[in-house]
Write a protein that binds this DNA or RNA. Sequence first.
DNA 1: CCTTGCATAGTACGATCATTGCATAGTACA
DNA 2: TGTACTATGCAATGATCGTACTATGCAAGG
Lengths: 147, 147
Amino acid sequence: MVDAVVAASRALVGVAARSLAGLEEEVTLSQYRALVLLCSRGPQGVAQLADLLGVSPSTATRMVDRLVTKGLARRHRASRDRRCVTVRVSGVGEALVREVTARRRAEIARIVGSMAPGSHESLVRALSEFARAAGEVPDQSWAWGWQ
Amino acid sequence: MVDAVVAASRALVGVAARSLAGLEEEVTLSQYRALVLLCSRGPQGVAQLADLLGVSPSTATRMVDRLVTKGLARRHRASRDRRCVTVRVSGVGEALVREVTARRRAEIARIVGSMAPGSHESLVRALSEFARAAGEVPDQSWAWGWQ
DNA sequence: CCTTGCATAGTACGATCATTGCATAGTACA
DNA sequence: TGTACTATGCAATGATCGTACTATGCAAGG
């Protein structure tokens, strides 16, 4: 039972990784991670961002620097407390995250389309078949190949 | 249908990322990726490793340097063709990969255990429920947080 | 048989950029 | 003044590439 899910996990991690590779605007994993947070949780302060990413504030500041340089995010000085800076994802940044998501959806759709229907199968059978359709060998435990 | 798998994908990628974080011996994603390849495909030459990782030979050499320095891999000069160097994962490296896999298995087992049985459900229902059990919100599209 | 030339495998070196933390400075609020 | 938030200087590590170099093997020719 667990093995089946683990196999599906390997396949899906591979999908997620490939959807991030070969992007036009090159972003690192850390940068993408920050972008995703800004998209999902909305504008954040630098300290909050650092907390969410699990890094130090200075690291977050520099991360934001790079995102701003690439046009993927913007800084906004809060009018109430001018010490605070709100970081907001830009249109370009949002589009980038959307594209990655679209790629993931597309590849998953392809994999799902290649599966046998089997609507009455158990969860184990379903996940096993999914992993097999994705080209994963259930016995070989590690074939991610992500990035 | 695709949405269900996408939701499961988000959950599983989160699991994979967490299983890699907080390791005693700190390894980067690239290093772990190389280790996994060495574990799954056995000893490899530097060129083959570079090819599998999709990087240049010089990059692979330095990667191997770092792995060897950390005691996670070893170099072996081939006796037949002394130009060739086979890179082999060490016992420590193998243990590291095993630990990451074990963590992943454990977390997946926990998630699976929290699911309703539903052995006769369709694939869509199964994956949807899996994602829900993992605490993923189907509507928010990006909550990876991986490392 | 030996040498010369070419192909292959790996490495060394220099360079760039990203990530990260610590310590510190600057700025704004209370 | 003291506290909070952000930014910056400094430093280390890592990932990555291109180029050049060394070592080895292979094949053709003398």
